[in-house]
Design a protein around this nucleic acid. Structure first.
Ligand code: MN
Ligand code: MN
Ligand code: ZN
Ligand code: ZN
Lengths: 146, 146
DNA sequence: ATTATTATTGAGATACATTCTCAATGGAGC
DNA sequence: GCTCCATTGAGAATGTATCTCAATAATAAT
């Protein structure tokens, strides 16, 4: 069991919930990669590894993972959302290729700072934010030129 | 007929399409306010004013308005999207109140610049972007304290 | 003017991601 | 064992958006 899954177990038990095999398998799946997985991909992977976790349980457990703070839900636009774990993964935003679907990450601390100032100016208390840049990734740019 | 609707008519005709009463009424509705309207709100408003435009036509016409450049479609997260007209409305991003749904606008030219640099660094060609900050608007912050 | 061609529309069907319902399951504690 | 209650899975329901296709309306041709 991965260390992040251990932490999730602690979270679940502290909350007075049961650390079931379904919850464990969803967590292990999410913590197994740094990719940006959507719920359906998690479900498919689980099915292929013999887990019998249902769609409803996958969604419910992803919500718990987000609540635990170990996983972040990101909005990739047009109704798509994805999950990624946060351990050793400082906050960042995303470049989304509208051709191949690739999601790249970028970090720009000054943007974060400017967002805070914008909120102060407006008397707005920020809880979270979503910044996506849509366009052509380097690979797809080349593919078109060729 | 509003000047923006005139421009839309020109766009439609230049494209070799017909400027029908349905298309006109959707355009007039969108140009009648600076609010962030979603498609369903446009449909409801049209119904209340006696227009018989159907849901399909509303969506189709909103797409045409976006294509014309006179209207922008914005992604407000969690699958919600809204439309706003662009005339005399320079680019800006949004503060979305998760309590009352209010959408405020803010402008931060330096953020735009930093996004461009981030793209250059990644070899990414940006087409558009979406930046939303979620949280509590000033009004809702006060309401809770009271 | 009549006919043929084409664009547009509305109603409902369909798609899709997500949430909800509720009966069945299965630990936890007695 | 039995009771209690959290959890689960299957499928129904939701909400947003798109698609299908026959009917309608506009345009062009004869
Ligand atoms: Mn990421
Ligand atoms: Mn706006
Ligand atoms: Zn790409
Ligand atoms: Zn508010």
């Amino acid at each position: 069991m991965r260390p992040e899954t251990q932490q999730f177990m602690k979270f679940i038990e502290t909350k007075g919930l049961l650390f079931t095999t379904e919850r464990k398998s969803v967590a292990e799946e999410v913590f197994s990669t740094h990719d940006h997985l959507d719920a359906e991909e998690v479900l498919k992977k689980l099915k292929s590894t013999g887990s019998k976790a249902s769609r409803a349980t996958v969604y419910r457990t992803l919500d718990l993972l987000v609540e635990s703070g170990l996983v972040e839900k990101i909005d990739l636009g047009e109704g798509r959302s994805a999950y990624e774990h946060t351990a050793g993964h400082p906050h960042h935003d995303h470049l989304v290729c509208t051709v191949c679907g690739e999601v790249q990450e970028f970090e720009e601390p000054l943007i974060e700072q400017l967002q805070e100032w914008a909120c102060e100016k407006a008397g707005f208390r920020a809880i979270g934010h979503s910044l996506n840049i849509y366009g052509w990734c380097a690979k797809c740019k080349l593919a078109v030129k060729a």
